[in-house]
Design a protein around this nucleic acid. Structure first.
Lengths: 155, 155
DNA sequence: CAGGGATACTTGCGGGAACAAGCTAACTAA
DNA sequence: TTAGTTAGCTTGTTCCCGCAAGTATCCCTG
């Protein structure tokens, strides 16, 4: 649009691309979180932990890997796992090969809880987000994210 | 990819499109927020308020409109504005036409604060996000967001 | 021109998240 | 083998946010 010496301003297209994502994300996450809490007494972060573990080999993962996977601080994850252990969805086990480490283990109850919530949640994601795009656009979006944060779409 | 009776699962492309955005957003917001705090003692939410007001006619906006614009609860905005009033960036004024209402007014100090932070922030948004896309892709993204949440890209 | 209901904002309260400090276990080097 | 450093989690503290309840103003209907 116009380039000042430090190109400090955003074109209206850039603004739409950036701020649009911020607002979309905020609104979407707010709704989906409320939906999960109402239907399954689970926050979106808690759901993501269950999901991530359900997809991990043996339903088990190191605390630090889990924190990185859902983009949460270590201390945040400690307490989140505390809550899920308290309600029986997770168990903590020592890591055999490195005894400083702890694993978060998905229990059978936790897996059931995940599978129940999953139906609600995926329907919500579809209706609010994925349904707005055709298949080619979905592929395009995934490629975009991968380009910005390599590994963002990996498990 | 495969359609069960309720089509409950996500294809890997859908997963990449959805979870990729979640992770990208979380990582990006975390970095940008930290950058603003470190450089300008301003949270990302606070910055967004200053930005939104700076673009509003007369640097003034009703509390509820502001809350909607940055996707924050009313009570959250009340306290956020409290903080910005306390440090002199904003002032509260009664709304003349509806005396239940309050305006948040950007002060001169607030506008200076915004302009300072803006340089840092836009550089961060560019280098972490916008630079990964060419112009056509930027336009595409803006259109996507508009499609999901109409008004998402409007001021 | 009341009186009931809606609207705009604030306040009380509780929960979740990050940062920094602490603790244990593991590596490294002499 | 033992001191020093690093890595992995947890705990103490503080901040920010959302929900529900409270207060003030406006609107509408009779």
């Amino acid at each position: 649009m116009q380039a000042s010496s430090v190109n400090v301003s955003l074109s209206s297209a850039e603004l739409a691309a950036w701020r649009g994502m911020l607002r979309l994300h905020a609104a979407l996450v707010r709704d989906l979180d409320a939906e999960l809490r109402a239907g399954h007494d689970l926050s979106l972060h808690e759901y993501e932990v269950l999901l991530t573990l359900a997809e991990a080999p043996e339903g088990r993962m190191r605390m630090s890997d889990l924190a990185a996977a859902i983009v949460l601080s270590q201390s945040g994850l400690t307490r989140l796992v505390d809550r899920l252990v308290r309600d029986g969805s997770l168990a903590r086990t020592r890591c055999e090969v490195d005894r400083r480490g702890l694993n978060a283990d998905l229990t059978d109850a936790g897996r059931r809880r995940y599978l129940e919530a999953r139906v609600t949640h995926l329907a919500g994601v579809r209706s609010r987000f994925l349904d707005r795009f055709d298949e080619a656009e979905i592929v395009l979006l995934g490629g975009f994210w991968e380009r910005v944060v390599p590994g963002a779409t990996a498990e």
